[in-house]
């Protein structure tokens, strides 16, 4: 693979291949930052990949009390799915089970979006006719009586079908510790990019997959070309000095947000250098025929 070198880090002349998704999001507030984060983490817990979780979700940004509609600490959560219907179903289920139940929380729409999906307008029935509608500045809020007071939930939240899922970076290093150091630095840098999330645990995935399998009926299986323990025995994409590969997958509300997150991640990895961090960075794609969005690493370099 042809490569560029930045501060000693080898950058593959490759691209990440991404797909259109439906993206939506909510701002969750609570009396304390702790409980806002608790609701956000519970709601986005089992949401790493659309394949098994129905959606991909994560914390976009933490908001200070000054930035939220009700003046309490908040968290902006984004959720992505393959269709508008899936996004709506996942969001309503997760809000109903994870946020309605979480003490002190309130929910607001996180984006305008070209579509509106019903959230409070669905959850309201939990109020058993004790729920109260309040309209302010063209937005409807539902007040649902619960055991710690009231759950306040906006009637609808915005959804955009112009979201992008599947932006990624493959971080390759000598061992687990140094590779993880570079990966964590990249994830931390991406956390500051608005409108983008890394849905996997801590933003990182170690089980990258390829299309197809030797077993019948399995659509995807381990990406042996990037498994360091198979370096000698399979057609490997790795080099002799690579002992660990970690991937960061990025979903964003816009094509730009994904590019910005990848750029921020690359910058952090390069800044760390090959001695303590990653020796090489690549990107995953399927040959460019499946996804309409191509993020070439060479365009995103610092």
């Amino acid at each position: 693979m042809p490569q560029l070198i930045r501060k000693g880090v080898r950058i593959d002349d490759s691209f990440a291949e991404a797909f259109p998704m439906s993206g939506t999001g909510v701002v969750i507030t609570a009396p304390t930052r702790k409980w806002a984060l608790q609701a956000a983490h519970t709601m986005t817990g089992f949401a790493t990949s659309v394949i098994g979780c129905g959606c991909e979700a994560g914390v976009d940004l933490e908001l200070s009390a000054r930035e939220t509609p009700d003046g309490r600490p908040g968290v902006r959560v984004l959720l992505f799915a393959m269709s508008q219907k899936d996004a709506e179903k996942q969001l309503v289920n997760r809000l109903g089970q994870c946020v309605l139940t979480c003490p002190g929380t309130a929910v607001f729409s996180a984006l305008a979006g070209e579509q509106q999906i019903k959230v409070g307008d669905a959850v309201r029935q939990f109020g058993d006719r004790w729920q109260i509608s309040k309209r302010l500045n063209g937005r409807r809020y539902w007040r649902i009586p619960v055991m710690d007071g009231e759950f306040l939930c906006e009637g609808t939240v915005g959804l955009t079908t112009k979201s992008v899922g599947g932006g990624n970076l493959l971080v390759m290093g000598e061992d687990w510790t140094s590779t993880m150091r570079a990966t964590e630095a990249a994830v931390a840098a991406m956390a500051d990019v608005a409108d983008a999330i890394a849905p996997f645990p801590g933003g990182v995935v170690r089980s990258g997959s390829k299309v197809g399998s030797k077993y019948k009926g399995m659509g995807a299986s381990t990406n042996d070309a990037y498994c360091p323990t198979l370096y000698g025995i399979t057609t490997s994409a790795l080099d002799p000095d690579i002992g660990c590969v970690l991937e960061i997958v990025i979903d964003g509300l816009t094509e730009q947000a994904v590019a910005d997150a990848m750029r921020a991640g690359l910058k952090a990895i390069v800044a760390l250098g090959p001695k303590h961090g990653a020796k090489r960075v690549g990107a995953g794609n399927y040959g460019g025929k499946l996804g309409p969005f191509h993020y070439h690493l060479k365009d995103l370099l610092p």
Binding site: D70, G71, L136, G149, L152
Partner: peptide, 13 residues
Amino acid sequence: AFHFGFARVYARS
């Protein structure tokens, strides 16, 4: 007596 969430939203607006 309570701190109402909706009242806080109105207060801001």
